[in-house]
Amino acid sequence: MLQLVRLVAVSFIVLAVCVLFLYSPFYSQTVLKALHQFVPVNVNPVAANSQKAGGLSAINTLEPGSELWIARQAYLKVMQQQMQSQQADTLSVVHARYQLLQQQIKTQQEIDSEKEIQLPLMLDEPAASTVETPYVFVRDESHTQALMQQYLEFLSAYPIDLEPTAVDDDIFQDIAFIQQQNAQSTQTHDLPYAIVVLGGGLTLAENRQDIVVNHYTRLRLETALATAAKYPTLPIVLSGVEAPYMQDWLKQYGVDAQLLENRSMNTCENSRFSALLLQKKGGAPRVLLITDAYHMPRTRRLFALNGIATVPVEAPMPTPLTKWQPSVKNYDHSRRANYEMLATLRDVVLGSSDCREVP
């Protein structure tokens, strides 16, 4: 009986010490240091190939790898060559060719779409009339380079008559975009290309009706304001289903974030969908990443797996740590540290099973 009492007493003391440690500021800081030291953030070189250094553009909505996307890459290349050769008088001609090229691609896509939905019982009926085009392209998605070469030849040499008043105002935006790309072409991968802010959740406003950002998200947005003041030329990417509410919050302070990734439901999707968005907008090998300190190691690892190096910019937690004495505020940090530690172990060992491939 005496041994049992001793065992119960020792167990109670050990439990009390563990609880006391959880409520102290030392537990969360120990876990945080371990996460920052042991979680790998090496960039996946294969995924990094999709994040080529280029000028980010909020107006580019073409799907990477699509024919319209390939056509635009060919168009920008030809335009850049003409600008470097100082043949400004041909820029409008190239732009007119590009408009014709877009029209032909869209027409062919509509024809292909009609063929796909045509019912077998209607095969004996006359086929829908097609628009004759003076230039035929080989439509083989497995040969992107060949398709690119055909588009380059079309944009460089196809004969076209251009009316003096037929110049589209979009050409001036394209020229400005190319100039921006040229200015950023000398930028090293060590410099950031964008500011990425991860959402931390939503909550109800004081009226219990309106939806607003919660304390975690608000503190990240406040950090984003300070970061944007230091890097005024960098575009801001808002990631998470909270993105529209985050955008509204920033607008109150005169900051307009135009790149919204509003489909992700977890950290894995934050990184994957943000990487796809940045790829579509021109590429970003390195970004400034804003989230809280506990969330940062796991998030940096996931962004690295998607080919993006990150520069951490830590946002504060809603509650501060005490210096040494136990408190409920400290336990909030310990609970956050436990969650991120277990989530990181799950991601490393089992992978993120709840992460969708595409938005």
Rank of each mutant, 00 (worst) to 15 (best):
G200Y: 06
L278Q: 07
N262L: 00
R272Q: 04
L259R: 05
N270T: 01
Y216T: 12
Y193F: 15
Y253S: 13
Y245A: 12
L277D: 05
L238Y: 03
A226H: 01
Y193Q: 12
Q279W: 08
L234D: 00
M246F: 14
L219M: 13
L259A: 01
E242H: 10
R220D: 06
R272W: 06
Q247P: 00
V241P: 09
T188W: 00
M265D: 04
L276V: 04
K280A: 10
Q209I: 12
R263P: 00
T203N: 07
H189M: 13
H215I: 15
H189P: 03
N266A: 07
E242I: 07
E222F: 03
S239G: 14
K230A: 12
A243H: 05
L278S: 04
N270W: 06
V212F: 11
P244E: 08
K251H: 12
F273T: 00
T227W: 02
I236W: 06
I236P: 03
M265T: 14
I211N: 10
Q187A: 09
A275S: 08
E261A: 06
N266W: 01
S274D: 08
K230Q: 13
H215T: 15
L219S: 10
E242L: 11
M265A: 02
G282Q: 05
L202Y: 02
P192I: 14
A194W: 04
A228D: 03
W249M: 04
N262K: 10
T233R: 13
K281I: 10
V241C: 07
N262D: 14
I195R: 04
A284H: 10
T186F: 08
L219I: 09
L198G: 02
E206G: 15
T217F: 08
Y216A: 10
T267Q: 08
H189A: 14
N266L: 06
L234R: 04
S271W: 02
V255F: 11
Q258V: 11
S271G: 01
K280V: 03
D190C: 02
Q258L: 13
R263C: 10
Y231F: 15
V196I: 10
A228K: 10
G282A: 03
L234P: 03
D248V: 09
N214C: 08
Y231H: 14
E242R: 07
G200T: 04
Y216D: 08
N207V: 08
H215P: 05
V196P: 02
T223K: 15
L204A: 07
N270M: 02
E261R: 06
L250N: 04
K230V: 00
N214K: 00
T186Y: 08
K230C: 06
L198I: 11
A257Y: 11
Q258G: 08
G254V: 04
L278M: 14
F273M: 02
K251P: 07
R220Y: 12
I236G: 00
V212L: 11
T186C: 01
Q209D: 02
L238H: 05
N262F: 02
A224Q: 05
H189G: 11
L250D: 01
Q247A: 15
S264H: 05
M246Q: 09
Q252C: 05
D256F: 11
A226Q: 11
K251F: 08
L277G: 05
K280C: 02
N214G: 11
V212P: 00
G254C: 03
D210Y: 02
A229M: 04
N262W: 05
P235Q: 03
G240K: 03
P244I: 12
A257Q: 08
A205C: 14
M265R: 15
